[in-house]
């Protein structure tokens, strides 16, 4: 009898967990799978990398806490310094042309021109092509002796560089490939942004005597500023994380001329098993990316304000 009463009382009253969670219990349950996945696969590994970066962990054998030693040795590692420099150059010079060309292309492709969808698809296609497949094709294009590019340059009497085998031209060649790949994505995002600008603004400008170029400078560019900031940050992050293209096309060579941060992390972690050191490199990369993302929040907001004003 007493047990039955207890059961009935338990059925009527909410459980302890349910009481603790309050009326939002079902909401918590619904977000739980995504939350758990995030914790296990993102948060926990990030935490682990942070811890490992303070150790001399090398996959096997003993390890010890070494404080910030990994971080200080990074700045004496000439491979890492080369990687940092190359990554910054790659990120900046891939981003700027792909942003500006993406906007110009998007502006052109919002007009009613013949073959519009063909051009839109053509420019977007590189973005969906596998990086490895694209890289192999570009390897043949950049082949110094018999590549497509040098054949053309030779035909018009221009000097034919060794491209990926020359430290002066290897990184620029990779930047060309990076721009080619990013351009279509930027163009599509800009296309969406341009379609959100009310036509009336352009019409009003035209009535006021503004020329097309002036409208582009004074209406289009300011109004797509939030999109520009978004693309700037995403492009910067992608640029800092470049790996597959480098791995397939140059392996970081010649003479470390194209090694990047993620390439160094890969080599140190999976080839040389310097997990502690590679973790420190990852933490530094994460700090850079986090800094840039914070900048996105700040300046992206400014862009929005400009749109409102």
């Amino acid at each position: 009898m007493a047990i039955a009463a207890k059961r009935a009382r338990r059925g009527a009253e909410p459980g302890r967990l349910r009481r603790w969670l309050g009326p939002d219990a079902s909401g918590y349950l619904l977000i739980a799978p995504a939350y758990v996945t995030y914790v296990i696969f993102i948060l926990a590994p990030v935490f682990a990398v942070g811890v490992l970066s303070l150790t001399s962990y090398r996959l096997v054998g003993t390890w010890e806490w070494i404080g910030l030693d990994n971080f200080t040795s990074m700045w004496n590692d000439h491979n890492y310094i080369s990687a940092l420099k190359n990554t910054a150059v790659y990120a900046f010079f891939t981003l700027m042309p792909s942003l500006s060309l993406g906007l110009v292309l998007a502006a052109v492709l919002t007009r009613q021109i013949r073959g519009l969808s063909f051009f839109r698809q053509s420019y977007y296609l590189p973005n969906v092509v596998s990086t490895v497949a694209a890289a192999v094709t570009w390897l043949w294009i950049f082949d110094p002796g018999n590549g497509f590019l040098n054949r053309i340059l030779g035909a018009v009497g221009l000097p034919r560089p060794d491209w990926l085998y020359d430290p002066n031209t290897a990184l620029p060649a990779l930047i060309v490939v990076g721009v080619w790949k990013m351009l279509g994505y930027n163009m599509v995002i800009y296309l969406a942004a341009l379609q959100g600008i009310p036509r009336e603004i352009y019409e009003a400008a035209r009535v006021d005597g503004a020329k097309e170029r002036e409208a582009f400078w004074h209406i289009t560019i300011p109004l797509v500023q939030p999109t520009t900031f978004f693309l700037l940050i995403m492009g910067f992050i992608n640029g800092f994380q470049v790996f597959d293209q480098i791995y397939v096309m140059t392996s970081g060579g010649p003479a470390n001329a194209t090694t990047t941060l993620v390439h160094q992390i890969y080599l140190n972690a999976f080839f040389f098993h310097h997990l502690g050191y590679a973790s420190a490199e990852s933490v530094f990369l994460m700090i850079v990316v986090a800094f840039v993302t914070l900048a996105n929040f700040r300046y992206g907001q400014q862009g929005k304000l400009m749109e409102v004003s």
Binding site: V132, A135, L139, P144, G145, Y165, V248
Partner: peptide, 17 residues
């Protein structure tokens, strides 16, 4: 001719170059 011993497109000799 410049080449890469471990390049994904193969060595120059392998490609007849």
């Amino acid at each position: 001719i410049p080449s890469d011993q471990q390049g994904v497109t193969g060595t120059a000799f392998q490609n007849g170059l």
